[in-house]
Write a protein that binds this DNA or RNA. Structure first.
Length: 457
RNA sequence: GACCCGUUCGUCUAGGGGCCUAGGACACUGGCCUUUCACGCCGGCAACACGGGUUCGAAUCCCGUACGGGUCGCCA
């Protein structure tokens, strides 16, 4: 039997970090087994579902390379089918019409909570003839005693006494299906074999299993993964650090880095840290998932992001540095040459344009305040002398280094006497990659012009 | 409150009875390299929640306590 997994977000907000990781695990598990990974939008609640949220979820998933196989299923479009199943259960005697009003229910709930007993609707075994002419919900009959054990692939065997399970509502008073019913029916109809989701659904699984059993359907394999917490250990919530996946894109994180980090959050393969998509597919298994909740650590995400930035091809890095700006072939060539040096210093993609600004055009760069301090009168004199002695032809980094070495010796100076101020004059900054590499790729004419332009005092 | 789950360095984790005076990564930190920053390299700090068992031997197995999380909706 081929594996089918699914990621089923509810479109009430954006795709957050926890959801992204759940999607990742489902994707990886399916790919590992050569199965299918499906998407289903759980828009059962019309009030809270929005088109914007659906778009945002797809946007996030696409960014992370976690788009589903085929079209995403819209749960709301399947309402008829859900109702049909509820009817079937009703006819088979597994469910009943419950005429309890919301107020009555609230009262019962309070009492149940106080006594520790579960709510049992008086309509569960009532005579259908006595039914009033008013709205009703359709509830599933939970066994009164005994227990159910789920062989969860992450949590292990988990047992719950039926006495703690209420008769779940499958159809609301207005006849619409609830989430509890819809998941089960959709998972079955979609052929889902493995349900991998947050462990906030673990308790639901017991209720859902009863619907499955009543319908005589095969029970899927369950894997309830621990939730992700914020850096302070508190639950991640919208107002507490639970940023949308795409917010990280905007902050300059690469999707590869995000997936790698998310994968390691709660899953491990020995001491391996840097794991690309291909490797992840090969290695992923449910056994590697930990049982305890993990905290989201931006520092580590950033470290991994730096790694992936460094691994980018120079041409891609050059394009990133340009940030959409036009550039002549010679400037692109220059940026490509400088790319590895810049990438080594970047933590976020957005660092690139700022760092490379002085190299992305031939205009005289403005000197930043801290760099200006390096350009005192003495330094300017030295630089102007250097500019005079510079050859007309461009030099390779090695050749320029050799030239500079000889020039320094002739002047009786050390590299530290010229390096920092040369950097300040040529780049306008105090901190940049190797100034020799920079001068070489900028070209002698450029270097002379910049020294002249920035050493006027 | 009831029910379920969890607990190894600050964080993510390795570990599945002796290989553990507990390993890796991030962070922090000392040094080297050096034209700055960064990278890299070498070194350091730092953990088995607690208490009982079981065993020749426990981070690893069992029980309890504490703490943390989750669930208890005609939300998903």
């Amino acid at each position: 039997m081929s594996v089918i997994t699914r990621f089923a977000p509810s479109p009430t907000g954006y795709l957050h970090i926890g959801g992204a990781r759940t999607a990742l695990f489902n994707y990886l598990f399916a790919r590992h087994h050569g199965g299918r990974y499906l998407l289903r939008i759980e828009d059962t609640d019309h009030e809270r579902s929005t088109k914007d949220a659906i778009d945002a979820i797809h946007d996030g998933l696409n960014w992370l390379g976690l788009a589903g196989d085929g079209e995403a299923v819209s749960q709301s479009s399947r309402a008829d089918r859900h109702v049909e199943v509820a009817q079937q259960l009703l006819e088979a005697g597994h469910a009943y019409r419950c005429y309890l009003t919301p107020d009555e229910l609230t009262a019962m709930r309070e009492e149940a909570r106080a006594t520790g007993q579960k709510i049992i609707s008086p309509w569960r075994d009532a005579d259908p003839q006595s039914a009033p002419d008013q709205p009703f919900t359709v509830r599933l009959k939970m066994p009164l005693d005994g227990s159910t054990t789920i062989a969860d692939q992450v949590q292990g065997d988990v047992t719950v006494q039926h006495a703690t399970l209420d008769d779940l509502v499958m159809l609301r008073g207005d006849g619409s299906p609830t989430y509890m019913l819809a998941v089960v029916v959709d998972d079955h109809d979609m052929g889902v074999t493995h349900v991998i989701r947050g462990d906030d659904h673990l308790n639901n699984a017991f209720r859902q299993m009863k619907i499955i059993e009543a319908m005589g359907w095969p029970v899927p394999v369950y894997a309830h993964i621990p939730l992700i917490h914020g850096a302070d250990g508190a639950k991640l919530s919208k107002r507490h650090g639970a940023l949308s996946a795409t917010a990280y894109r905007d902050m300059g994180y690469m999707p590869e880095a995000m997936c790698n980090y998310l994968l390691r959050l709660g899953w491990s393969h020995g001491d391996d840290e840097i794991i690309n998509r291909e490797q992840a597919i090969e290695w992923f298994d449910l056994k590697g998932i930990g049982k305890s909740p993990a905290r989201f650590d931006t520092d580590k995400l950033t470290a991994i992001n730096s790694h992936y930035i460094r691994a980018l091809p120079p041409e891609d890095l050059a394009a990133l540095m340009l940030d959409g700006q036009d550039a002549s072939p010679s400037i692109v060539k220059r940026l490509v040459a400088l790319a590895p040096a810049f990438a080594e210093r970047a933590h976020h993609l957005g660092d690139l344009p700022a760092m490379a600004r002085f190299a992305a055009s031939n205009y005289l760069p403005a000197v930043e305040d801290d760099a200006q301090a390096l350009l005192d009168a003495d330094a300017c004199l030295r630089l102007q002398k250097l500019a005079q002695d510079l050859p007309d032809d461009d030099l390779s980094p090695d050749a320029f280094k050799a030239f500079l070495g000889q020039w320094l010796e002739g002047e009786g100076l050390k590299m530290r006497d010229i390096g920092p101020c040369l950097r300040a004059a040529v780049t306008g900054m105090k901190q940049t990659p190797d100034i020799i590499l920079i001068c070489s790729s900028l070209g002698m004419e450029n270097v002379k012009a910049r020294i002249a332009g920035n050493c006027k005092n």
